[in-house]
Design a binder for these strands. Sequence first.
RNA 1: GCCGAUGUAGCUCAAUGGUAGAGCAACUGACUUGUAAUCAGUAGGUUGGCGGUUCAAGUCCGCCCAUCGGCUCCA
Length: 638
Amino acid sequence: MSSEEITVTLRGSIRKAAKGTPIGELFEREERRTLIAARLNGKLVDLSRPLDQDATIEGVSIDSPAGIDILRHSTAHLMAQAVQSLYPGTQVTIGPATEEGFYYDFARSTPFTSDDLPKIEQRMRELARADEKIERMEMTRDEAVELFARMGEHFKVEILRDLPDDRVSIYRQGDWMDLCRGPHVPSTGWIKAFALLSVAGAYWRGDERNAMLSRVYGTAFPDQASLEEHLELLKLARARDHRRLGRELGLVLFDSRAPGSPFFLPKGAIVVNELIAYIRRLYARYGFKEVITPQIFRNELWRTSGHWELFRENMFLTTDGENAGGELDYALKPMNCPAHAVLYASEKRSYRDLPLRLADFGRLHRAERSGVLHGLTRVRAMTQDDAHIFCTLDQIAQEVDSNLKMVREVYQALGFEQMELKLATMPEEHLGSEQTWRRTEAMLAEAMERNGLSYQTNPGEGAFYGPKIEIYVPDALKRRWQLATIQLDFNMPERFGLEYVSSHGTAEQPVMIHRAILGTIERFLGVFIEHTGGLFPFWLAPEQVRVLSLTDKVESYASELAARLEREGLRVALDARNEKLGFKVRQAELAKVPYIVVAGEREAAAGTISLRRVRGAKAETMTVEELVATLKSEPLPG
RNA sequence: GCCGAUGUAGCUCAAUGGUAGAGCAACUGACUUGUAAUCAGUAGGUUGGCGGUUCAAGUCCGCCCAUCGGCUCCA
């Protein structure tokens, strides 16, 4: 028995323990059933960690957020163990927990395919059943380098060489070991509910100049029921995929002859046009002036703007017919800003003209790499609700505030509660001095703080001409997409030699603020389809009302009704087909038409209709006038 | 771009190397229908494209195109 005692604080109560006692033994037997790790003075550690000095400890249960992360990380290890026992010669690299699961990247000559997953899963189950103890060991970094070099784990050696610490931890389960910071579940038996989901290629350290690794994704939960619930959610999310809904609802078409470039069908065009109409109503209120600018510019413009230097690989280069086959001396615009700079410079500007807010729904084209295209959310042809504000230094704060206000107004109107703000800072490839960058970054940071908005930093992700406030919204599968953006730019005005005459008669350089609220409309629509499941608010619904006739005896009553609603400015369709009512109702429901109006003989006789609101609510009978009033009372934002 | 997978009728999917099918949609007809699928019939295809192997290719091989899952949430 050690005579040395230390003091442990556990849930506010203080007790003594012998020095060297494993943390896990300090908890009650009952609690230990769900305990997989602990916090030692706030730091996550294994339950087997012996206490060597006075400390405050806390249990981490398997179903707490931190516990689930640990479980998933341990599951990643279990997978690596399974993989190395099944496929000798495969090197391990890294295997972190992610928001919804985990992955592990392996280095091997032939990548895994999804056919390998069941086999790996099977081995994992065997290893979990063996319930091997997971033990932590420490050694010096040099010893670890030697160990992993001997094991042929060259990626681990590389990781070790980059670690700052002298001592590193190694985890062992059975005869398998891995370099790892930990902590881990006490034994493999804790890993019960897991599934391997997909395989993918991934570059070592995410850099395409490095080796291609084979990544396996999976997920794990404290119990089988939660796992099944999660898999069910994934299935539901797939059903909400905008690429599926976009086609099913007749909104969008993709064709391999125009990769990354959506066709908007008549219904999709209505939604896009309504969104733009909404933004135009806001422009009137927020003082923006809309302009229309050219599509194709001579390269001279792109050289001036810096796009030629820093954005060319994302641009479609072209030429005129005369020069066909010759020099590509024109390019399709990937952004509107240079055009607006040209427009600004076309007149002598005074401080009295500022702020000058130029809006543009111009169509943009970007040569995105083929592998990144993704439905509507990552496209090559796009329309933004883009605008550029030319203003004085003193006006920046008020302009940024006003745009943040507009962002909030729009996202609230469209039902997005979850948005994330980020401050994207100076990228490696940039124009202008670092000093200017840091100053403008600070201005944006202050603006968000001033408006009570919390944000995270996205280092190195700014545009090449200036830092950005980025607003992200998640899609159905919780992938985040950047929509709105507000960017400060001192470079474009400099490069285009923009000026205004100050009140003192001196020539000054204006600042340019690039901003978009919906961002790219294509992407916005993609995210919005998933957000709403295709059930748009009334003002955006491509078809707002569908009139269903019951039999051909009431066809004329129904068609007159439809004509009446159309005269009221509503988007109406008439379904007078020779089908049963149930069938027509079903089709209208599937088409997500917000109002379904049924006209039968009873209604025709009484001059009424039967109204069914979307999602199977109970039908209500009302007069035609009441119907018109109901429909016309639907709100229109802006 | 890179790694892997996939590509068959408008859509969702079948088809040992041996005559390309089904359901839904479309079209025609019957039924006159009451709030999420009436019945019957008809038509629909250079199996993504080009080339190759084979007596024979949707199926095997090569190249190309497109689509899908991914490509630093730190051992």
